[in-house]
């Protein structure tokens, strides 16, 4: 199996605070990976670096072993096939649900391409299909601002899938969801793995258990432990980081 995402000895500090401090990580194609860690462990900065929002001070970040992600901006990373879902659901509130999905569809992203774009029949079908998947078909003409918190989470996942990404970076998807929705989300992410590479950042241990995958524990900007959830739970250092303070 080839490596999808490769980080080697990455450092990044903000005004002296070392947010990422020697982080190395390799994620295989089609893998489902959970990243956990206490607050300030560097999870969000790690995603910022992968998506080109933040440049590392030093270190290597490679995509598919060939593309240097430190030279790519947010839009560039999205076009390479990296989809990112934020902790706080961000959808385009003034647009309708289906418009949100439509502008996310994988397509020509150039200014004039977008200006002259006309939606094809396949694209319309794809929108309907995605709406069905995230269970928002009934709300397709509603303004995204009118959705409930959970529905916005789903809409954002729909937008993510519309981009047809190879890698999904998902930040705390379970936050604000009911137990039922949480389990459905875990199920969806598990089903996406294999055809997609999925990296989930999560606090909720129940959710991580439901994902049933390899877990990476971040602490102070570096990897503390890696392995199955049971394996890392047994690690005394991990226990100390989570419970010791």
């Amino acid at each position: 199996m080839s490596v999808q995402l490769y980080l080697n000895d990455v450092h990044r500090s903000f005004d002296g605070f070392k947010a990422i401090n020697g982080l190395s990580l390799a994620i295989d194609k089609g893998e489902l990976r959970a990243v956990i860690g206490p607050n300030g462990a560097g999870k969000t900065t790690m995603m910022d670096i992968i998506t080109g929002k933040t440049r590392p001070d030093t270190g290597e970040v490679f995509w598919n072993g060939t593309v240097d992600l430190t030279k790519v901006d947010e839009a560039g990373s999205a076009r390479l096939g990296i989809g990112r879902k934020f902790q706080k659901p961000t959808v385009i509130e003034s647009l309708t649900v289906e418009e949100n999905i439509a502008i996310s569809l994988k397509d020509d992203r150039s200014v004039f391409g977008t200006l002259l774009n006309r939606q094809s029949a396949e694209q319309a079908a794809r929108v309907s299909e995605l709406l069905e998947l995230v269970r928002l078909s009934a709300d397709r003409r509603r303004s995204a601002a009118d959705l409930s918190h959970g529905q916005k989470q789903w809409l954002e996942i729909g937008m993510l899938l519309a981009q047809e990404p190879e890698l999904l970076l998902v930040d705390e998807p379970a936050a604000g969801m009911t137990d039922d929705e949480t389990m459905r989300t875990a199920e969806l992410l598990r089903s996406l793995a294999g055809s997609h590479t999925v990296v989930v950042v999560e606090h909720d241990m129940e959710f991580v258990r439901a994902l049933d995958c390899k877990v990476t524990v971040l602490h102070q900007g570096a990897v503390l432990a890696e392995g199955s959830l049971d394996h890392v739970s047994a690690n005394p250092q991990v226990v100390e980081v989570y419970l010791g303070r």
Partner: peptide
């Protein structure tokens, strides 16, 4: 009313999100 118009609104409402969808804002 074109798709570009929707992208403009997306930029207005959530510029960062729009970048992550892959548009060069």
């Amino acid at each position: 009313t074109s798709k570009l118009g929707k992208v403009l609104v997306a930029v207005r409402d959530a510029e960062s999100r729009t970048r992550f969808i892959g548009y060069r804002v």
